[in-house]
Amino acid sequence: MAEFNVNINGKDFDIDADPTTPLLWVLRDHLKLVGTKYGCGIAQCGACTVHFNGAAVRSCQLPISAAAGAKITTIEGLSEHGDHPVQQAWLEVDVPQCGYCQAGQIMSASALLNQNPSPSDEEIENAMSGNICRCGTYVRIKEAIKKAANTQLS
């Protein structure tokens, strides 16, 4: 066990954990920030996506020792009132079915729009293909990302 200082959603936390503990389980088990989901544990499904200094990363593959000192944003911290343009677009398009993968989808989508405010269809497809949705909401995810992009640009 060791102590790590991590900045999550703008707040500093001292975390006492084994250095190999993935950020995913620190968020869930230690901090009860359960919006970040466990789906595969091997960075193949995207359910655990968070922002690491603004970039989308899979928190299941990020040991807490590597997260120390970075600015981490989770779905809970994406916006103060759940009104980030991507979240708003998700509501307007009514994207979710079961909803389990959607936090990860939203984190990937918001990171994409940070880097590329006006992505093409192909760029959306490439950026979002690391996030699996077994319910099959991909068509709506794309629609919501385009809607959010338009909102942010206007």
Binding site: L33, V34, G35, T36, K37, Y38, T74, I75, E76, L78, G82, Q87, W90, L91, D94, P96, G99, Y100, Q102, A103, I106
Partner: peptide
């Protein structure tokens, strides 16, 4: 979807 707001803000909903 009545749970949509909770889903997109990461509130606890699921068994896990």
């Amino acid at each position: 979807n009545v749970d949509a707001k909770k889903i997109v803000t990461g509130q606890p909903l699921f068994g896990l």
